[in-house]
Simulated assay, not measured.
Amino acid sequence: MTSFLDPLISFVSAHAWLAYLTLFLAALLEAVPVVGSVIPGSTIILALSALVPGGELQLQWVLLAAALGAVLGDGSAYWIGHRRQREILTAWPLTNYPRVVAESESFFHRFGTWAVFFARFVPPIRAFVPVTAGALGMAPARFYAVNIPAILLWAPAHVLPGVLAVSALHEYAGLHHHGHVGKHIWILTVVGAALGLGVAMWIYRRRNGDGFAKGKPRA
């Protein structure tokens, strides 16, 4: 296992900017309508955050990359909705996902401004509420006043579990004494678990989520 992970750790150490770019893109694409419902952005963020305790990545830059990606992704979706108004909700590709669009609109009407805050933590409508908020005429100042604080909470909520898990495993096993090999095993465990969760979620969505999202009756 360590022979598999050593090149990855070495690559990330030498090209940390690429890992930060991946984090940024994962957070951005997760906020794009339709795309965000299939991109395992949270899984990618969790997996890469496991490299923070070993020093391959820096926590502050991981948090910044994730937060900036989410701000740009949510903001872009909001402005598309703001410019096109309700027309966007009945345009392709959103027409392929009428139930999620309807749920997002219902969520927005139910919680009002706070829908933008809560949706950041609720997939798959996380990728649909910003464009819905814009389409339904939410003012930009109100949107960002709720969206940015939500993202400032969302980023640590997705990054810190991976960081804390690896740090706790290091401490529990006394890996600061046993060194390099043990550290890599635990990082591989967390990364593998995160990727496994992402694959399981993707399979579940393919089997169940697509039919629900596209308006087909659930089994």
Rank of each mutant, 00 (worst) to 15 (best):
L94P: 01
F111I: 11
L195T: 01
D210S: 04
A67D: 09
G198K: 05
Y144K: 05
A168P: 01
S37M: 11
H176A: 11
N208K: 04
A77F: 09
G209W: 06
I80F: 15
L51N: 10
I80Q: 14
L197F: 12
G215Q: 08
L8H: 09
T2M: 13
Y172V: 10
N208T: 13
E30F: 02
R206I: 15
S76A: 15
K183W: 04
R84N: 13
S13H: 10
I45M: 11
L29R: 00
S37G: 07
H82R: 15
F107G: 09
A168Q: 01
P123C: 08
S13Q: 12
A193E: 01
A16G: 02
I148E: 01
A102I: 15
E56W: 10
H180M: 08
S3R: 10
L59G: 06
N147A: 08
G209Y: 05
N208Q: 01
D6S: 14
V163S: 05
E87R: 15
R205L: 02
L94V: 13
V38F: 04
S167P: 02
A150T: 00
H176Y: 12
N208E: 04
G137W: 03
L25C: 10
V32R: 10
L94I: 13
W154D: 05
A165N: 03
E30T: 04
P40Y: 06
V71I: 14
A119M: 12
V131K: 11
L57Y: 05
S106Q: 13
K183I: 00
L8T: 01
P53D: 03
R142Y: 02
E56N: 12
A66G: 06
F107V: 13
I185N: 10
G182R: 02
S49K: 11
L57M: 11
A26N: 02
L89P: 00
L136G: 00
R207P: 13
L5M: 12
F4S: 10
G36P: 11
S3T: 07
G179I: 01
R126G: 05
T2H: 15
V52K: 12
S37K: 02
G69T: 01
V166D: 07
N147H: 03
G73H: 09
R142P: 00
T95N: 07
P98N: 13
L46I: 00
V166M: 06
I187R: 15
L46H: 06
L48D: 04
A70H: 03
V199F: 08
H177C: 01
L18S: 10
A27P: 08
N208C: 05
P7R: 11
E171R: 06
I148D: 03
T43S: 15
L64K: 12
W114T: 07
I9L: 15
A66R: 05
A173Y: 10
H176F: 02
E87L: 14
I39L: 05
H176M: 07
R142T: 00
R110V: 09
V34I: 11
I80T: 13
G174E: 08
V163L: 02
V52R: 14
D210V: 15
S104M: 14
E56C: 09
G73N: 06
D74M: 07
F108C: 14
L18C: 05
A135K: 10
A155S: 02
